[in-house]
């Protein structure tokens, strides 16, 4: 009987101990569903995404939604103040969240968010980077990874060109961004482990 649900996609980390596991899960699901829908709407606007098979569109979204949310919601993690803002808008200290059981994943997300924000990307650059995060040909279960790979390469080329134009003296930014991809994968794996530990019995 866990008393806390330490995910900023929730309205609060506190869980009502009188509620059933199913009710807690339903409430949490209602909280994060709008953000997931936004990721899907974002994906639909990526040129070429809708031309992929429906199976592959779903596979990419299933595998990559968490990573896209980490990028989009990096601003919820404040490293200087050491706080995390939940969807209700309320801030909680990292220390408090750690005492509730959030450990390595929370610290890794803080670290990731700080480094991503330090790159000071424009909205357009961030959007294109997010598209590159989502369209990854090495996700499992793809039926036509060649098509995904072609789209991924095209998006990556466009991102490189945009970064090179906007930051002519900082060629390392593109490399730093590419290095964020395995970091996101690692955060995704850590998050999946936590999810599995938290699964609710029907």
């Amino acid at each position: 009987n866990r008393m806390h649900l330490v995910c900023p996609m929730n309205t609060s980390p506190f869980v009502d101990p009188h509620k059933s596991g199913h009710a807690i899960w339903e409430e949490f699901s209602m909280s994060f569903t709008p953000a997931v829908r936004e990721v899907v709407e974002f994906a639909k606007r990526i040129p070429g995404f809708r031309e992929l098979s429906q199976h592959d569109q779903i596979s990419l979204l299933k595998a990559g939604t968490f990573e896209v949310l980490v990028v989009r919601f990096a601003s919820l993690f404040d490293v200087k103040e050491r706080t995390v803002t939940f969807l209700s808008g309320k801030k909680y200290s990292v220390e408090m969240l750690c005492s509730m059981g959030a450990g390595d994943l929370l610290n890794s997300m803080l670290d990731f968010s700080e480094k991503l924000r330090a790159l000071d990307l424009s909205e357009e650059e961030m959007s294109l980077f997010t598209a590159v995060v989502l369209v990854s040909a090495d996700r499992s279960g793809l039926e036509n990874s060649k098509s995904v790979e072609a789209l991924q390469e095209s998006l990556t080329r466009t991102l490189r060109s945009l970064i090179t134009q906007s930051h002519p003296n900082e060629s390392a930014i593109f490399t730093k961004l590419l290095l964020k991809l395995p970091e996101l994968r690692s955060l995704n794996n850590m998050h999946s482990e936590q999810l599995l530990a938290f699964k609710v019995q029907p």
């Binding site: 994060f32 997931v36 979204l61 299933k62 939604t65 999946s192 999810l195 599995l196």
Partner: peptide, 27 residues
């Protein structure tokens, strides 16, 4: 529910959003 995305009900949300359906699940 060995797949984390299925565990979250993510596929259902994604599928509905992709198809443009706004209907909620009726359990």
């Amino acid at each position: 529910y060995s797949d984390p995305a299925s565990n979250l009900g993510l596929e259902d949300i994604i599928r509905k959003a992709l198809m443009g359906s706004v209907d909620d699940r009726q359990d």
